[in-house]
Design a protein around this nucleic acid. Structure first.
Lengths: 122, 122
DNA sequence: TAATTGTATTAATATGCATAATACAAAGAG
DNA sequence: CTCTTTGTATTATGCATATTAATACAATTA
């Protein structure tokens, strides 16, 4: 599991981390039971402050993606726990599809792209 | 064309405006040649500062979605001008699909949702 | 017992968003 | 031509959030 940070991005570092983990879990790169890097290890390795890493872990924990235990580190949760579909996610999906459509992509092209993203690639 | 602002949202006001316009164009609510509200009118009506409205207009102009002319106001551009597909859009799409997948939605459910969003509804 | 884990605390800094009050150039209306 | 409307530029200020920093703590495991 490789984490990369873009310090030029307008996306906050803690969200960059959270988003990469979510995608990795969805694509099977991270499986239930897998351990995430420790807060301090990832901080040292990336140069990002430990509290920023911790903030991402707390967010993912609250969202149900991972669980953290004393001394146990952060562990990817089993997929059985139902995670709520936020209306915000659908709104963001709507925006992405609108942008792709206005860029000239047709319905089937977009559907194909979505299928590829769902299955794993890219 | 109704614009609504959520002052509690973490999405900046100028981006809220931009996103709503992009979606409206994609869904045909706004058509090429249509006029957007004037900066001052939308500012007065919504309570959002005029410079914030202007910032959204400048962004949409730069992205190619609208054009602004002196005295002419803001006009929705024709769809012929090719708008670049940013890699950022695909990344955000990837994140949305991953979130939906982890919430329990299957491939076909997601594809159906995407088709509906593409065609207009919601 | 000693070390490692996520986390809490407090403080400081930086960046971006938003507002406010004005002013200007261009272009259409009369 | 004159006046009004349009988007835009300018400058300043306030505010929220992100990030860093330096410690410290509780729980758990080796």
């Amino acid at each position: 599991m490789y984490i990369t940070f873009d310090f030029q991005s307008d996306v906050p570092l803690y969200l960059q981390l959270r988003n990469q983990v979510v995608i990795a879990i969805s694509k099977g790169v991270l499986k239930p039971g897998d351990h995430l890097p420790t807060v301090r290890a990832l901080s040292d390795e990336s140069g990002v402050n430990a509290m920023t890493i911790s903030k991402a872990y707390q967010l993912m924990k609250q969202e149900g993606y991972i669980s953290t235990e004393r001394r146990g580190g952060a562990v990817v949760s089993a997929g059985d726990k139902e995670i709520k579909v936020s209306k915000d996610t659908v709104n963001r999906l709507d925006l992405c599809i609108s942008e792709l459509r206005l860029s000239g992509m047709g319905e089937e092209q977009i559907v194909d792209l979505c299928r590829r993203l769902y299955r794993e690639e890219e």
